[in-house]
């Protein structure tokens, strides 16, 4: 059974009248952020959610945790979302670890705050020292304030707090942003251990593809609020099906000077959400776009039993033995 299922999920935000008017009145009254997101996450699995800034990654995470209203169906542990359940059984590690810790609260109090909020009886609480120990931090850290922590320590404190209630699902938003490479691995290894030992379902949101390649079993690629490709990470990296995924992988700077790229994999910028291109949202930057891409939104195609792509001209052909269509 899936730990978390999303079916045709969308998020719209209403636009303030002033903005609508300023844009000439022809703009929609609501701004569509996400649409048609169908995805599932299993226990003990890491799903990597990638995309550029503004693709809706964080919005999707917030919708899943009930922090933002959404359309469509979502089920957590087989049940429709209930806020009280979500708040006990899921946790989020926010992008800026220092900003997500109260500056006036000592680390020890911060990691134990979930117990207070959820009114967990004292007998079932873990001590701050115990929680800090589970993320590899010394108990002495409990007496410090967030500003006294290094970037890596602050991430670990946020992980300890996320684990306090023994959640079934943890969403980590850019868990390695701003960390040096020497400690980046530290945080990712820690999260991999927790997933293995406790069977936690983990969703890692990042735009750092090498991080995803090493830490996620499956990858989901978002572009302008649409899920353009999902599949097992090694297969997607080896043979991307969507031109956007291929461009993202090719844009990654290579540390080996002998493998320097001569040309640009992708030009231009992500269009504004207020000016969403018709048809396939990627057609304005796509190297293989044809006429139909500017008119007709592409259907979702199953290229194999485990891989889906939303493209008129996917880079790999559907597997004949796999399930067909999906249109």
């Amino acid at each position: 059974m899936s730990l978390f299922e999303l079916h045709e999920v969308g998020v719209d935000i209403p636009l303030a009248r002033g903005i609508t008017a300023a844009l000439g009145g022809h703009e929609p009254r609501v701004l569509n952020i996400l649409d048609g997101i169908t995805l599932d996450l299993h226990a003990g699995e890491t799903l990597g959610l990638v995309g550029e800034s503004g693709s809706g990654k964080t919005t999707l995470a917030r919708a899943m945790l009930g922090l933002r209203a959404a359309r469509g169906q979502m089920r957590f542990q087989g049940q429709p979302l209930v806020r009280a359940v979500l708040r006990r059984a899921t946790a989020m590690m926010f992008q800026d670890p220092v900003a997500s810790l109260s500056p006036r609260m000592r680390v020890g109090d911060a990691v134990c705050e979930p117990y207070v909020i959820q009114r967990i009886p004292r007998s079932r609480r873990r001590s701050a020292a115990d929680l800090l120990d589970s993320v590899g931090l010394p108990p002495s850290l409990a007496a410090l304030y967030p500003h006294e922590l290094s970037g890596g320590q602050a991430r670990r404190v946020c992980a300890a707090r996320a684990l306090a209630l023994n959640p079934a699902l943890v969403i980590a938003d850019e868990p390695t942003a701003g960390l040096d490479v020497s400690i980046q691995g530290d945080i990712l290894n820690l999260m991999a251990d927790l997933k293995r030992e406790r069977g936690i379902g983990l969703m890692i949101i990042t735009h750092n593809l090498p991080v995803i390649r090493h830490s996620a079993e499956r990858i989901a690629v978002l572009y302008l609020g649409r899920l353009v490709e999902t599949g097992p990470t090694p297969e997607v990296f080896a043979r991307p099906a969507h031109p956007y995924t291929a461009s993202l992988i090719a844009s990654q700077p290579n540390p080996d000077p002998r493998k320097r790229r001569a040309d640009l994999a992708i030009r231009g910028e992500v269009p504004s959400l207020l000016r969403r291109p018709p048809g396939c949202p990627f057609h304005t930057r796509c190297p293989v776009a044809r006429d139909i891409c500017a008119r007709v939104p592409p259907p979702e195609i199953h290229v194999s039993a485990t891989r889906r792509v939303r493209c008129h001209f996917p880079l790999i052909q559907p597997d004949r033995n796999g399930p067909q269509g999906g249109q």
């Binding site: 020497s182 980046q184 530290d186 090493h214």
Partner: peptide
């Protein structure tokens, strides 16, 4: 990149996930 001599340079390159081919169970630190 191809012939680092200082142990720090070697460690720095070894830690870069972009440098590691395939996937590894544990990332070096």
């Amino acid at each position: 990149y191809h012939d680092p001599r200082h142990p720090y340079t070697q460690a720095l390159i070894a830690c870069d996930p972009a440098h590691i081919a395939g996937t590894v169970d544990r990332l070096p630190t």
